[in-house]
Computed example of a mutant assay.
Amino acid sequence: MGWKVRAIRGATTASENSVEAIREAVTELLDALESLNPIDPDDIVSATFSVTRDLDAVFPAAIARERPHWQNVPLLDVQQMHVEGSLERCIRCLIQINTLEPLTAIHHPYLRQAKALRPDWSIATAPFSP
């Protein structure tokens, strides 16, 4: 099996719309993504963060850019489409990466209240601790 571009997804929620709360949530999510998947920042094609409209204190990409070796990763922030009754203060991440790993080896962490978004994935029900 050769190199493929794979997508790794994850989501979490922030406790409030503050720089500190968003930083904590994004850091926890990226820690989970990196600990559960063999991510080398040099192999990342791009990463997109989406946030619900109630989060605007800081860009998640700015937090990701502070991580070791993430300075040259192409990052993008977007606002998630609003759907009445949807999960509030939600941060989603989609990382596209060049990897040798098969799809079955990719883990998509859904943390905090975002666990409810994908209850069908077993990782979504397991607590994360670095």
Rank of each mutant, 00 (worst) to 15 (best):
S122C: 05
L111Q: 02
S46A: 12
H82M: 11
A21T: 09
A64L: 09
I123S: 01
L94Y: 03
H107G: 00
D31C: 04
I106E: 03
P68A: 15
A57T: 02
E84H: 05
E16K: 13
Q96F: 08
D120P: 03
S18Q: 07
F49P: 04
D40C: 11
P102G: 12
L29M: 14
Q79E: 14
W70H: 11
L94S: 08
Q80H: 09
D56R: 10
T27R: 13
S50M: 15
E34Y: 04
S122K: 10
A62S: 15
V19R: 14
A64H: 01
T52P: 07
L55E: 06
H69K: 12
I63M: 04
L87H: 03
D54F: 04
D77S: 07
Q80P: 02
W70V: 07
Q113L: 12
T52R: 00
E24M: 12
I63K: 00
L87C: 08
P127M: 05
S18E: 03
S18A: 06
L94I: 08
Y110I: 06
E101D: 10
L36S: 03
A57K: 02
G10P: 00
L87F: 06
L75E: 03
L117R: 08
V78W: 11
A61T: 15
P74G: 15
D120K: 10
I95Y: 00
I97Q: 01
D54G: 07
D31V: 00
T104V: 04
E34F: 09
T48N: 04
D77K: 03
S15E: 15
D54I: 10
R65I: 02
C93I: 15
R67N: 11
E28V: 13
S50I: 00
E28G: 03
P119K: 06
D56I: 04
I97A: 02
A116S: 14
T52S: 14
N98D: 05
I95W: 00
A25R: 02
T27E: 15
A11L: 07
V83C: 07
A124F: 10
G2F: 10
S122I: 08
E34D: 04
V5R: 10
R53M: 09
R89A: 09
F128Y: 15
E16H: 11
I123F: 01
I63C: 03
L36H: 11
T52Q: 02
G2Y: 09
P38S: 14
A116M: 05
L87N: 07
D42R: 13
P109K: 12
P109L: 09
R6N: 05
A105C: 06
L87Q: 05
Q71Y: 05
A61P: 12
I44V: 15
E16G: 13
S18P: 03
N72C: 04
N37L: 03
I39W: 07
A116H: 03
V58H: 07
I91E: 09
L33D: 01
R118A: 06
S15A: 13
K4S: 09
A7E: 11
E34Q: 12
I8V: 08
A64G: 06
I91C: 06
D40T: 13
H108Y: 05
L87E: 08
V5M: 11
V78G: 06
W121S: 01
Q79N: 13
F59A: 14
